[in-house]
Design a protein around this nucleic acid. Structure first.
Ligand SMILES: [Mn+2]
Ligand SMILES: [Mn+2]
Ligand SMILES: [Zn+2]
Ligand SMILES: [Zn+2]
Lengths: 144, 144
DNA sequence: AGCCCTAATTAGAACTATTCTAAATTGGGA
DNA sequence: TCCCAATTTAGAATAGTTCTAATTAGGGCT
């Protein structure tokens, strides 16, 4: 791999000039870096407040624009819980979200290896699933 | 069972004066009846337009109030697809939602008998799941 | 039946997350 | 360096939903 990285997602180190076909402007890089560093599923406003710290001239509209671009290019996932503000997640491994009511933390939950959706659901034969969103709410066992 | 039906959900026939602890006003009954009759997962505005036909004095605020009351009393489920307007569903059997892109229809999909969420997801032992929302988008095989 | 009192309904304003608009800025490439 | 399309920006607009405050409805009492 060379420095340009025109291909798919980005993993580790400095964010190159283009990722997944998306040109990394100063603002997009800042937004993307926050989502790579902070895996707490921040909202657009959360991201805005964090970007502001190092780039005070950034506007909220730009944060929305950047998030939209990152989502459209598949670098980031948009996560919705009921009617709450959207949250953003840079974990590209297929996973679902568990909102722990006792801590407020949103956890990434992965699928068990070999698990198939068709084993769980009565889907008509020949169904194509293009997108899936699964969110859980509850409490995790408290760590000792 | 006698005519009052103070207990759980309502199934078939005329809607009694109280269902699931919720007193059925004229407006609540109209909203509930629509959701029982029309299983197409209408939005609040959809419901409003349908209620209007037989009760033209009904306000949109009342439709929202009624839907909220029905949801709080567990007679109806609120369903969210991404950031679209909420939809409402009177199917109380545990199920998930499949949005067919080719027809626009939202289908109820039930769990396979005996299927367990823990078989699909890597949930820490001792996790309590209080709520689950699973939505799918894709295409169903076209009926001949 | 009439009264009373609380709950429910109503119209409209307010709210909030998000999107749009139009002008200013940026920066990659000729 | 200059140019131009893409991006950023501030602020207005939008849309679904919730709130406010006034009105109405109707169940339970006498
Ligand atoms: Mn939910
Ligand atoms: Mn989705
Ligand atoms: Zn995630
Ligand atoms: Zn349903």
């Amino acid at each position: 791999m060379v420095s340009s990285d025109q291909g798919g997602e980005h993993t580790g180190g400095e964010i190159p000039a283009v990722v997944g076909g998306l040109r990394m402007t100063k603002q997009r890089r800042a937004v993307y870096q926050i989502l790579l560093d902070d895996r707490d599923h921040p909202t657009a406003t959360d991201v805005f407040r964090r970007v502001e710290k190092t780039m005070p001239s950034t506007s909220l509209a730009t944060v929305y624009n950047c998030l939209e671009a990152l989502v459209e290019h598949g670098l980031v996932n948009q996560v919705n819980f009921d009617r709450e503000p959207s949250r953003f997640c840079s974990n590209l491994k297929e996973h679902v979200h568990f909102h722990d009511e006792s801590t407020g933390v949103i956890h990434d939950i992965s699928f068990k290896k070999g698990a198939k959706l068709e084993d769980l659901l009565s889907l008509p034969k020949g169904t194509t699933v293009k997108d899936l969103e699964l969110t859980l709410r509850g409490v995790l066992p408290k760590k000792k």
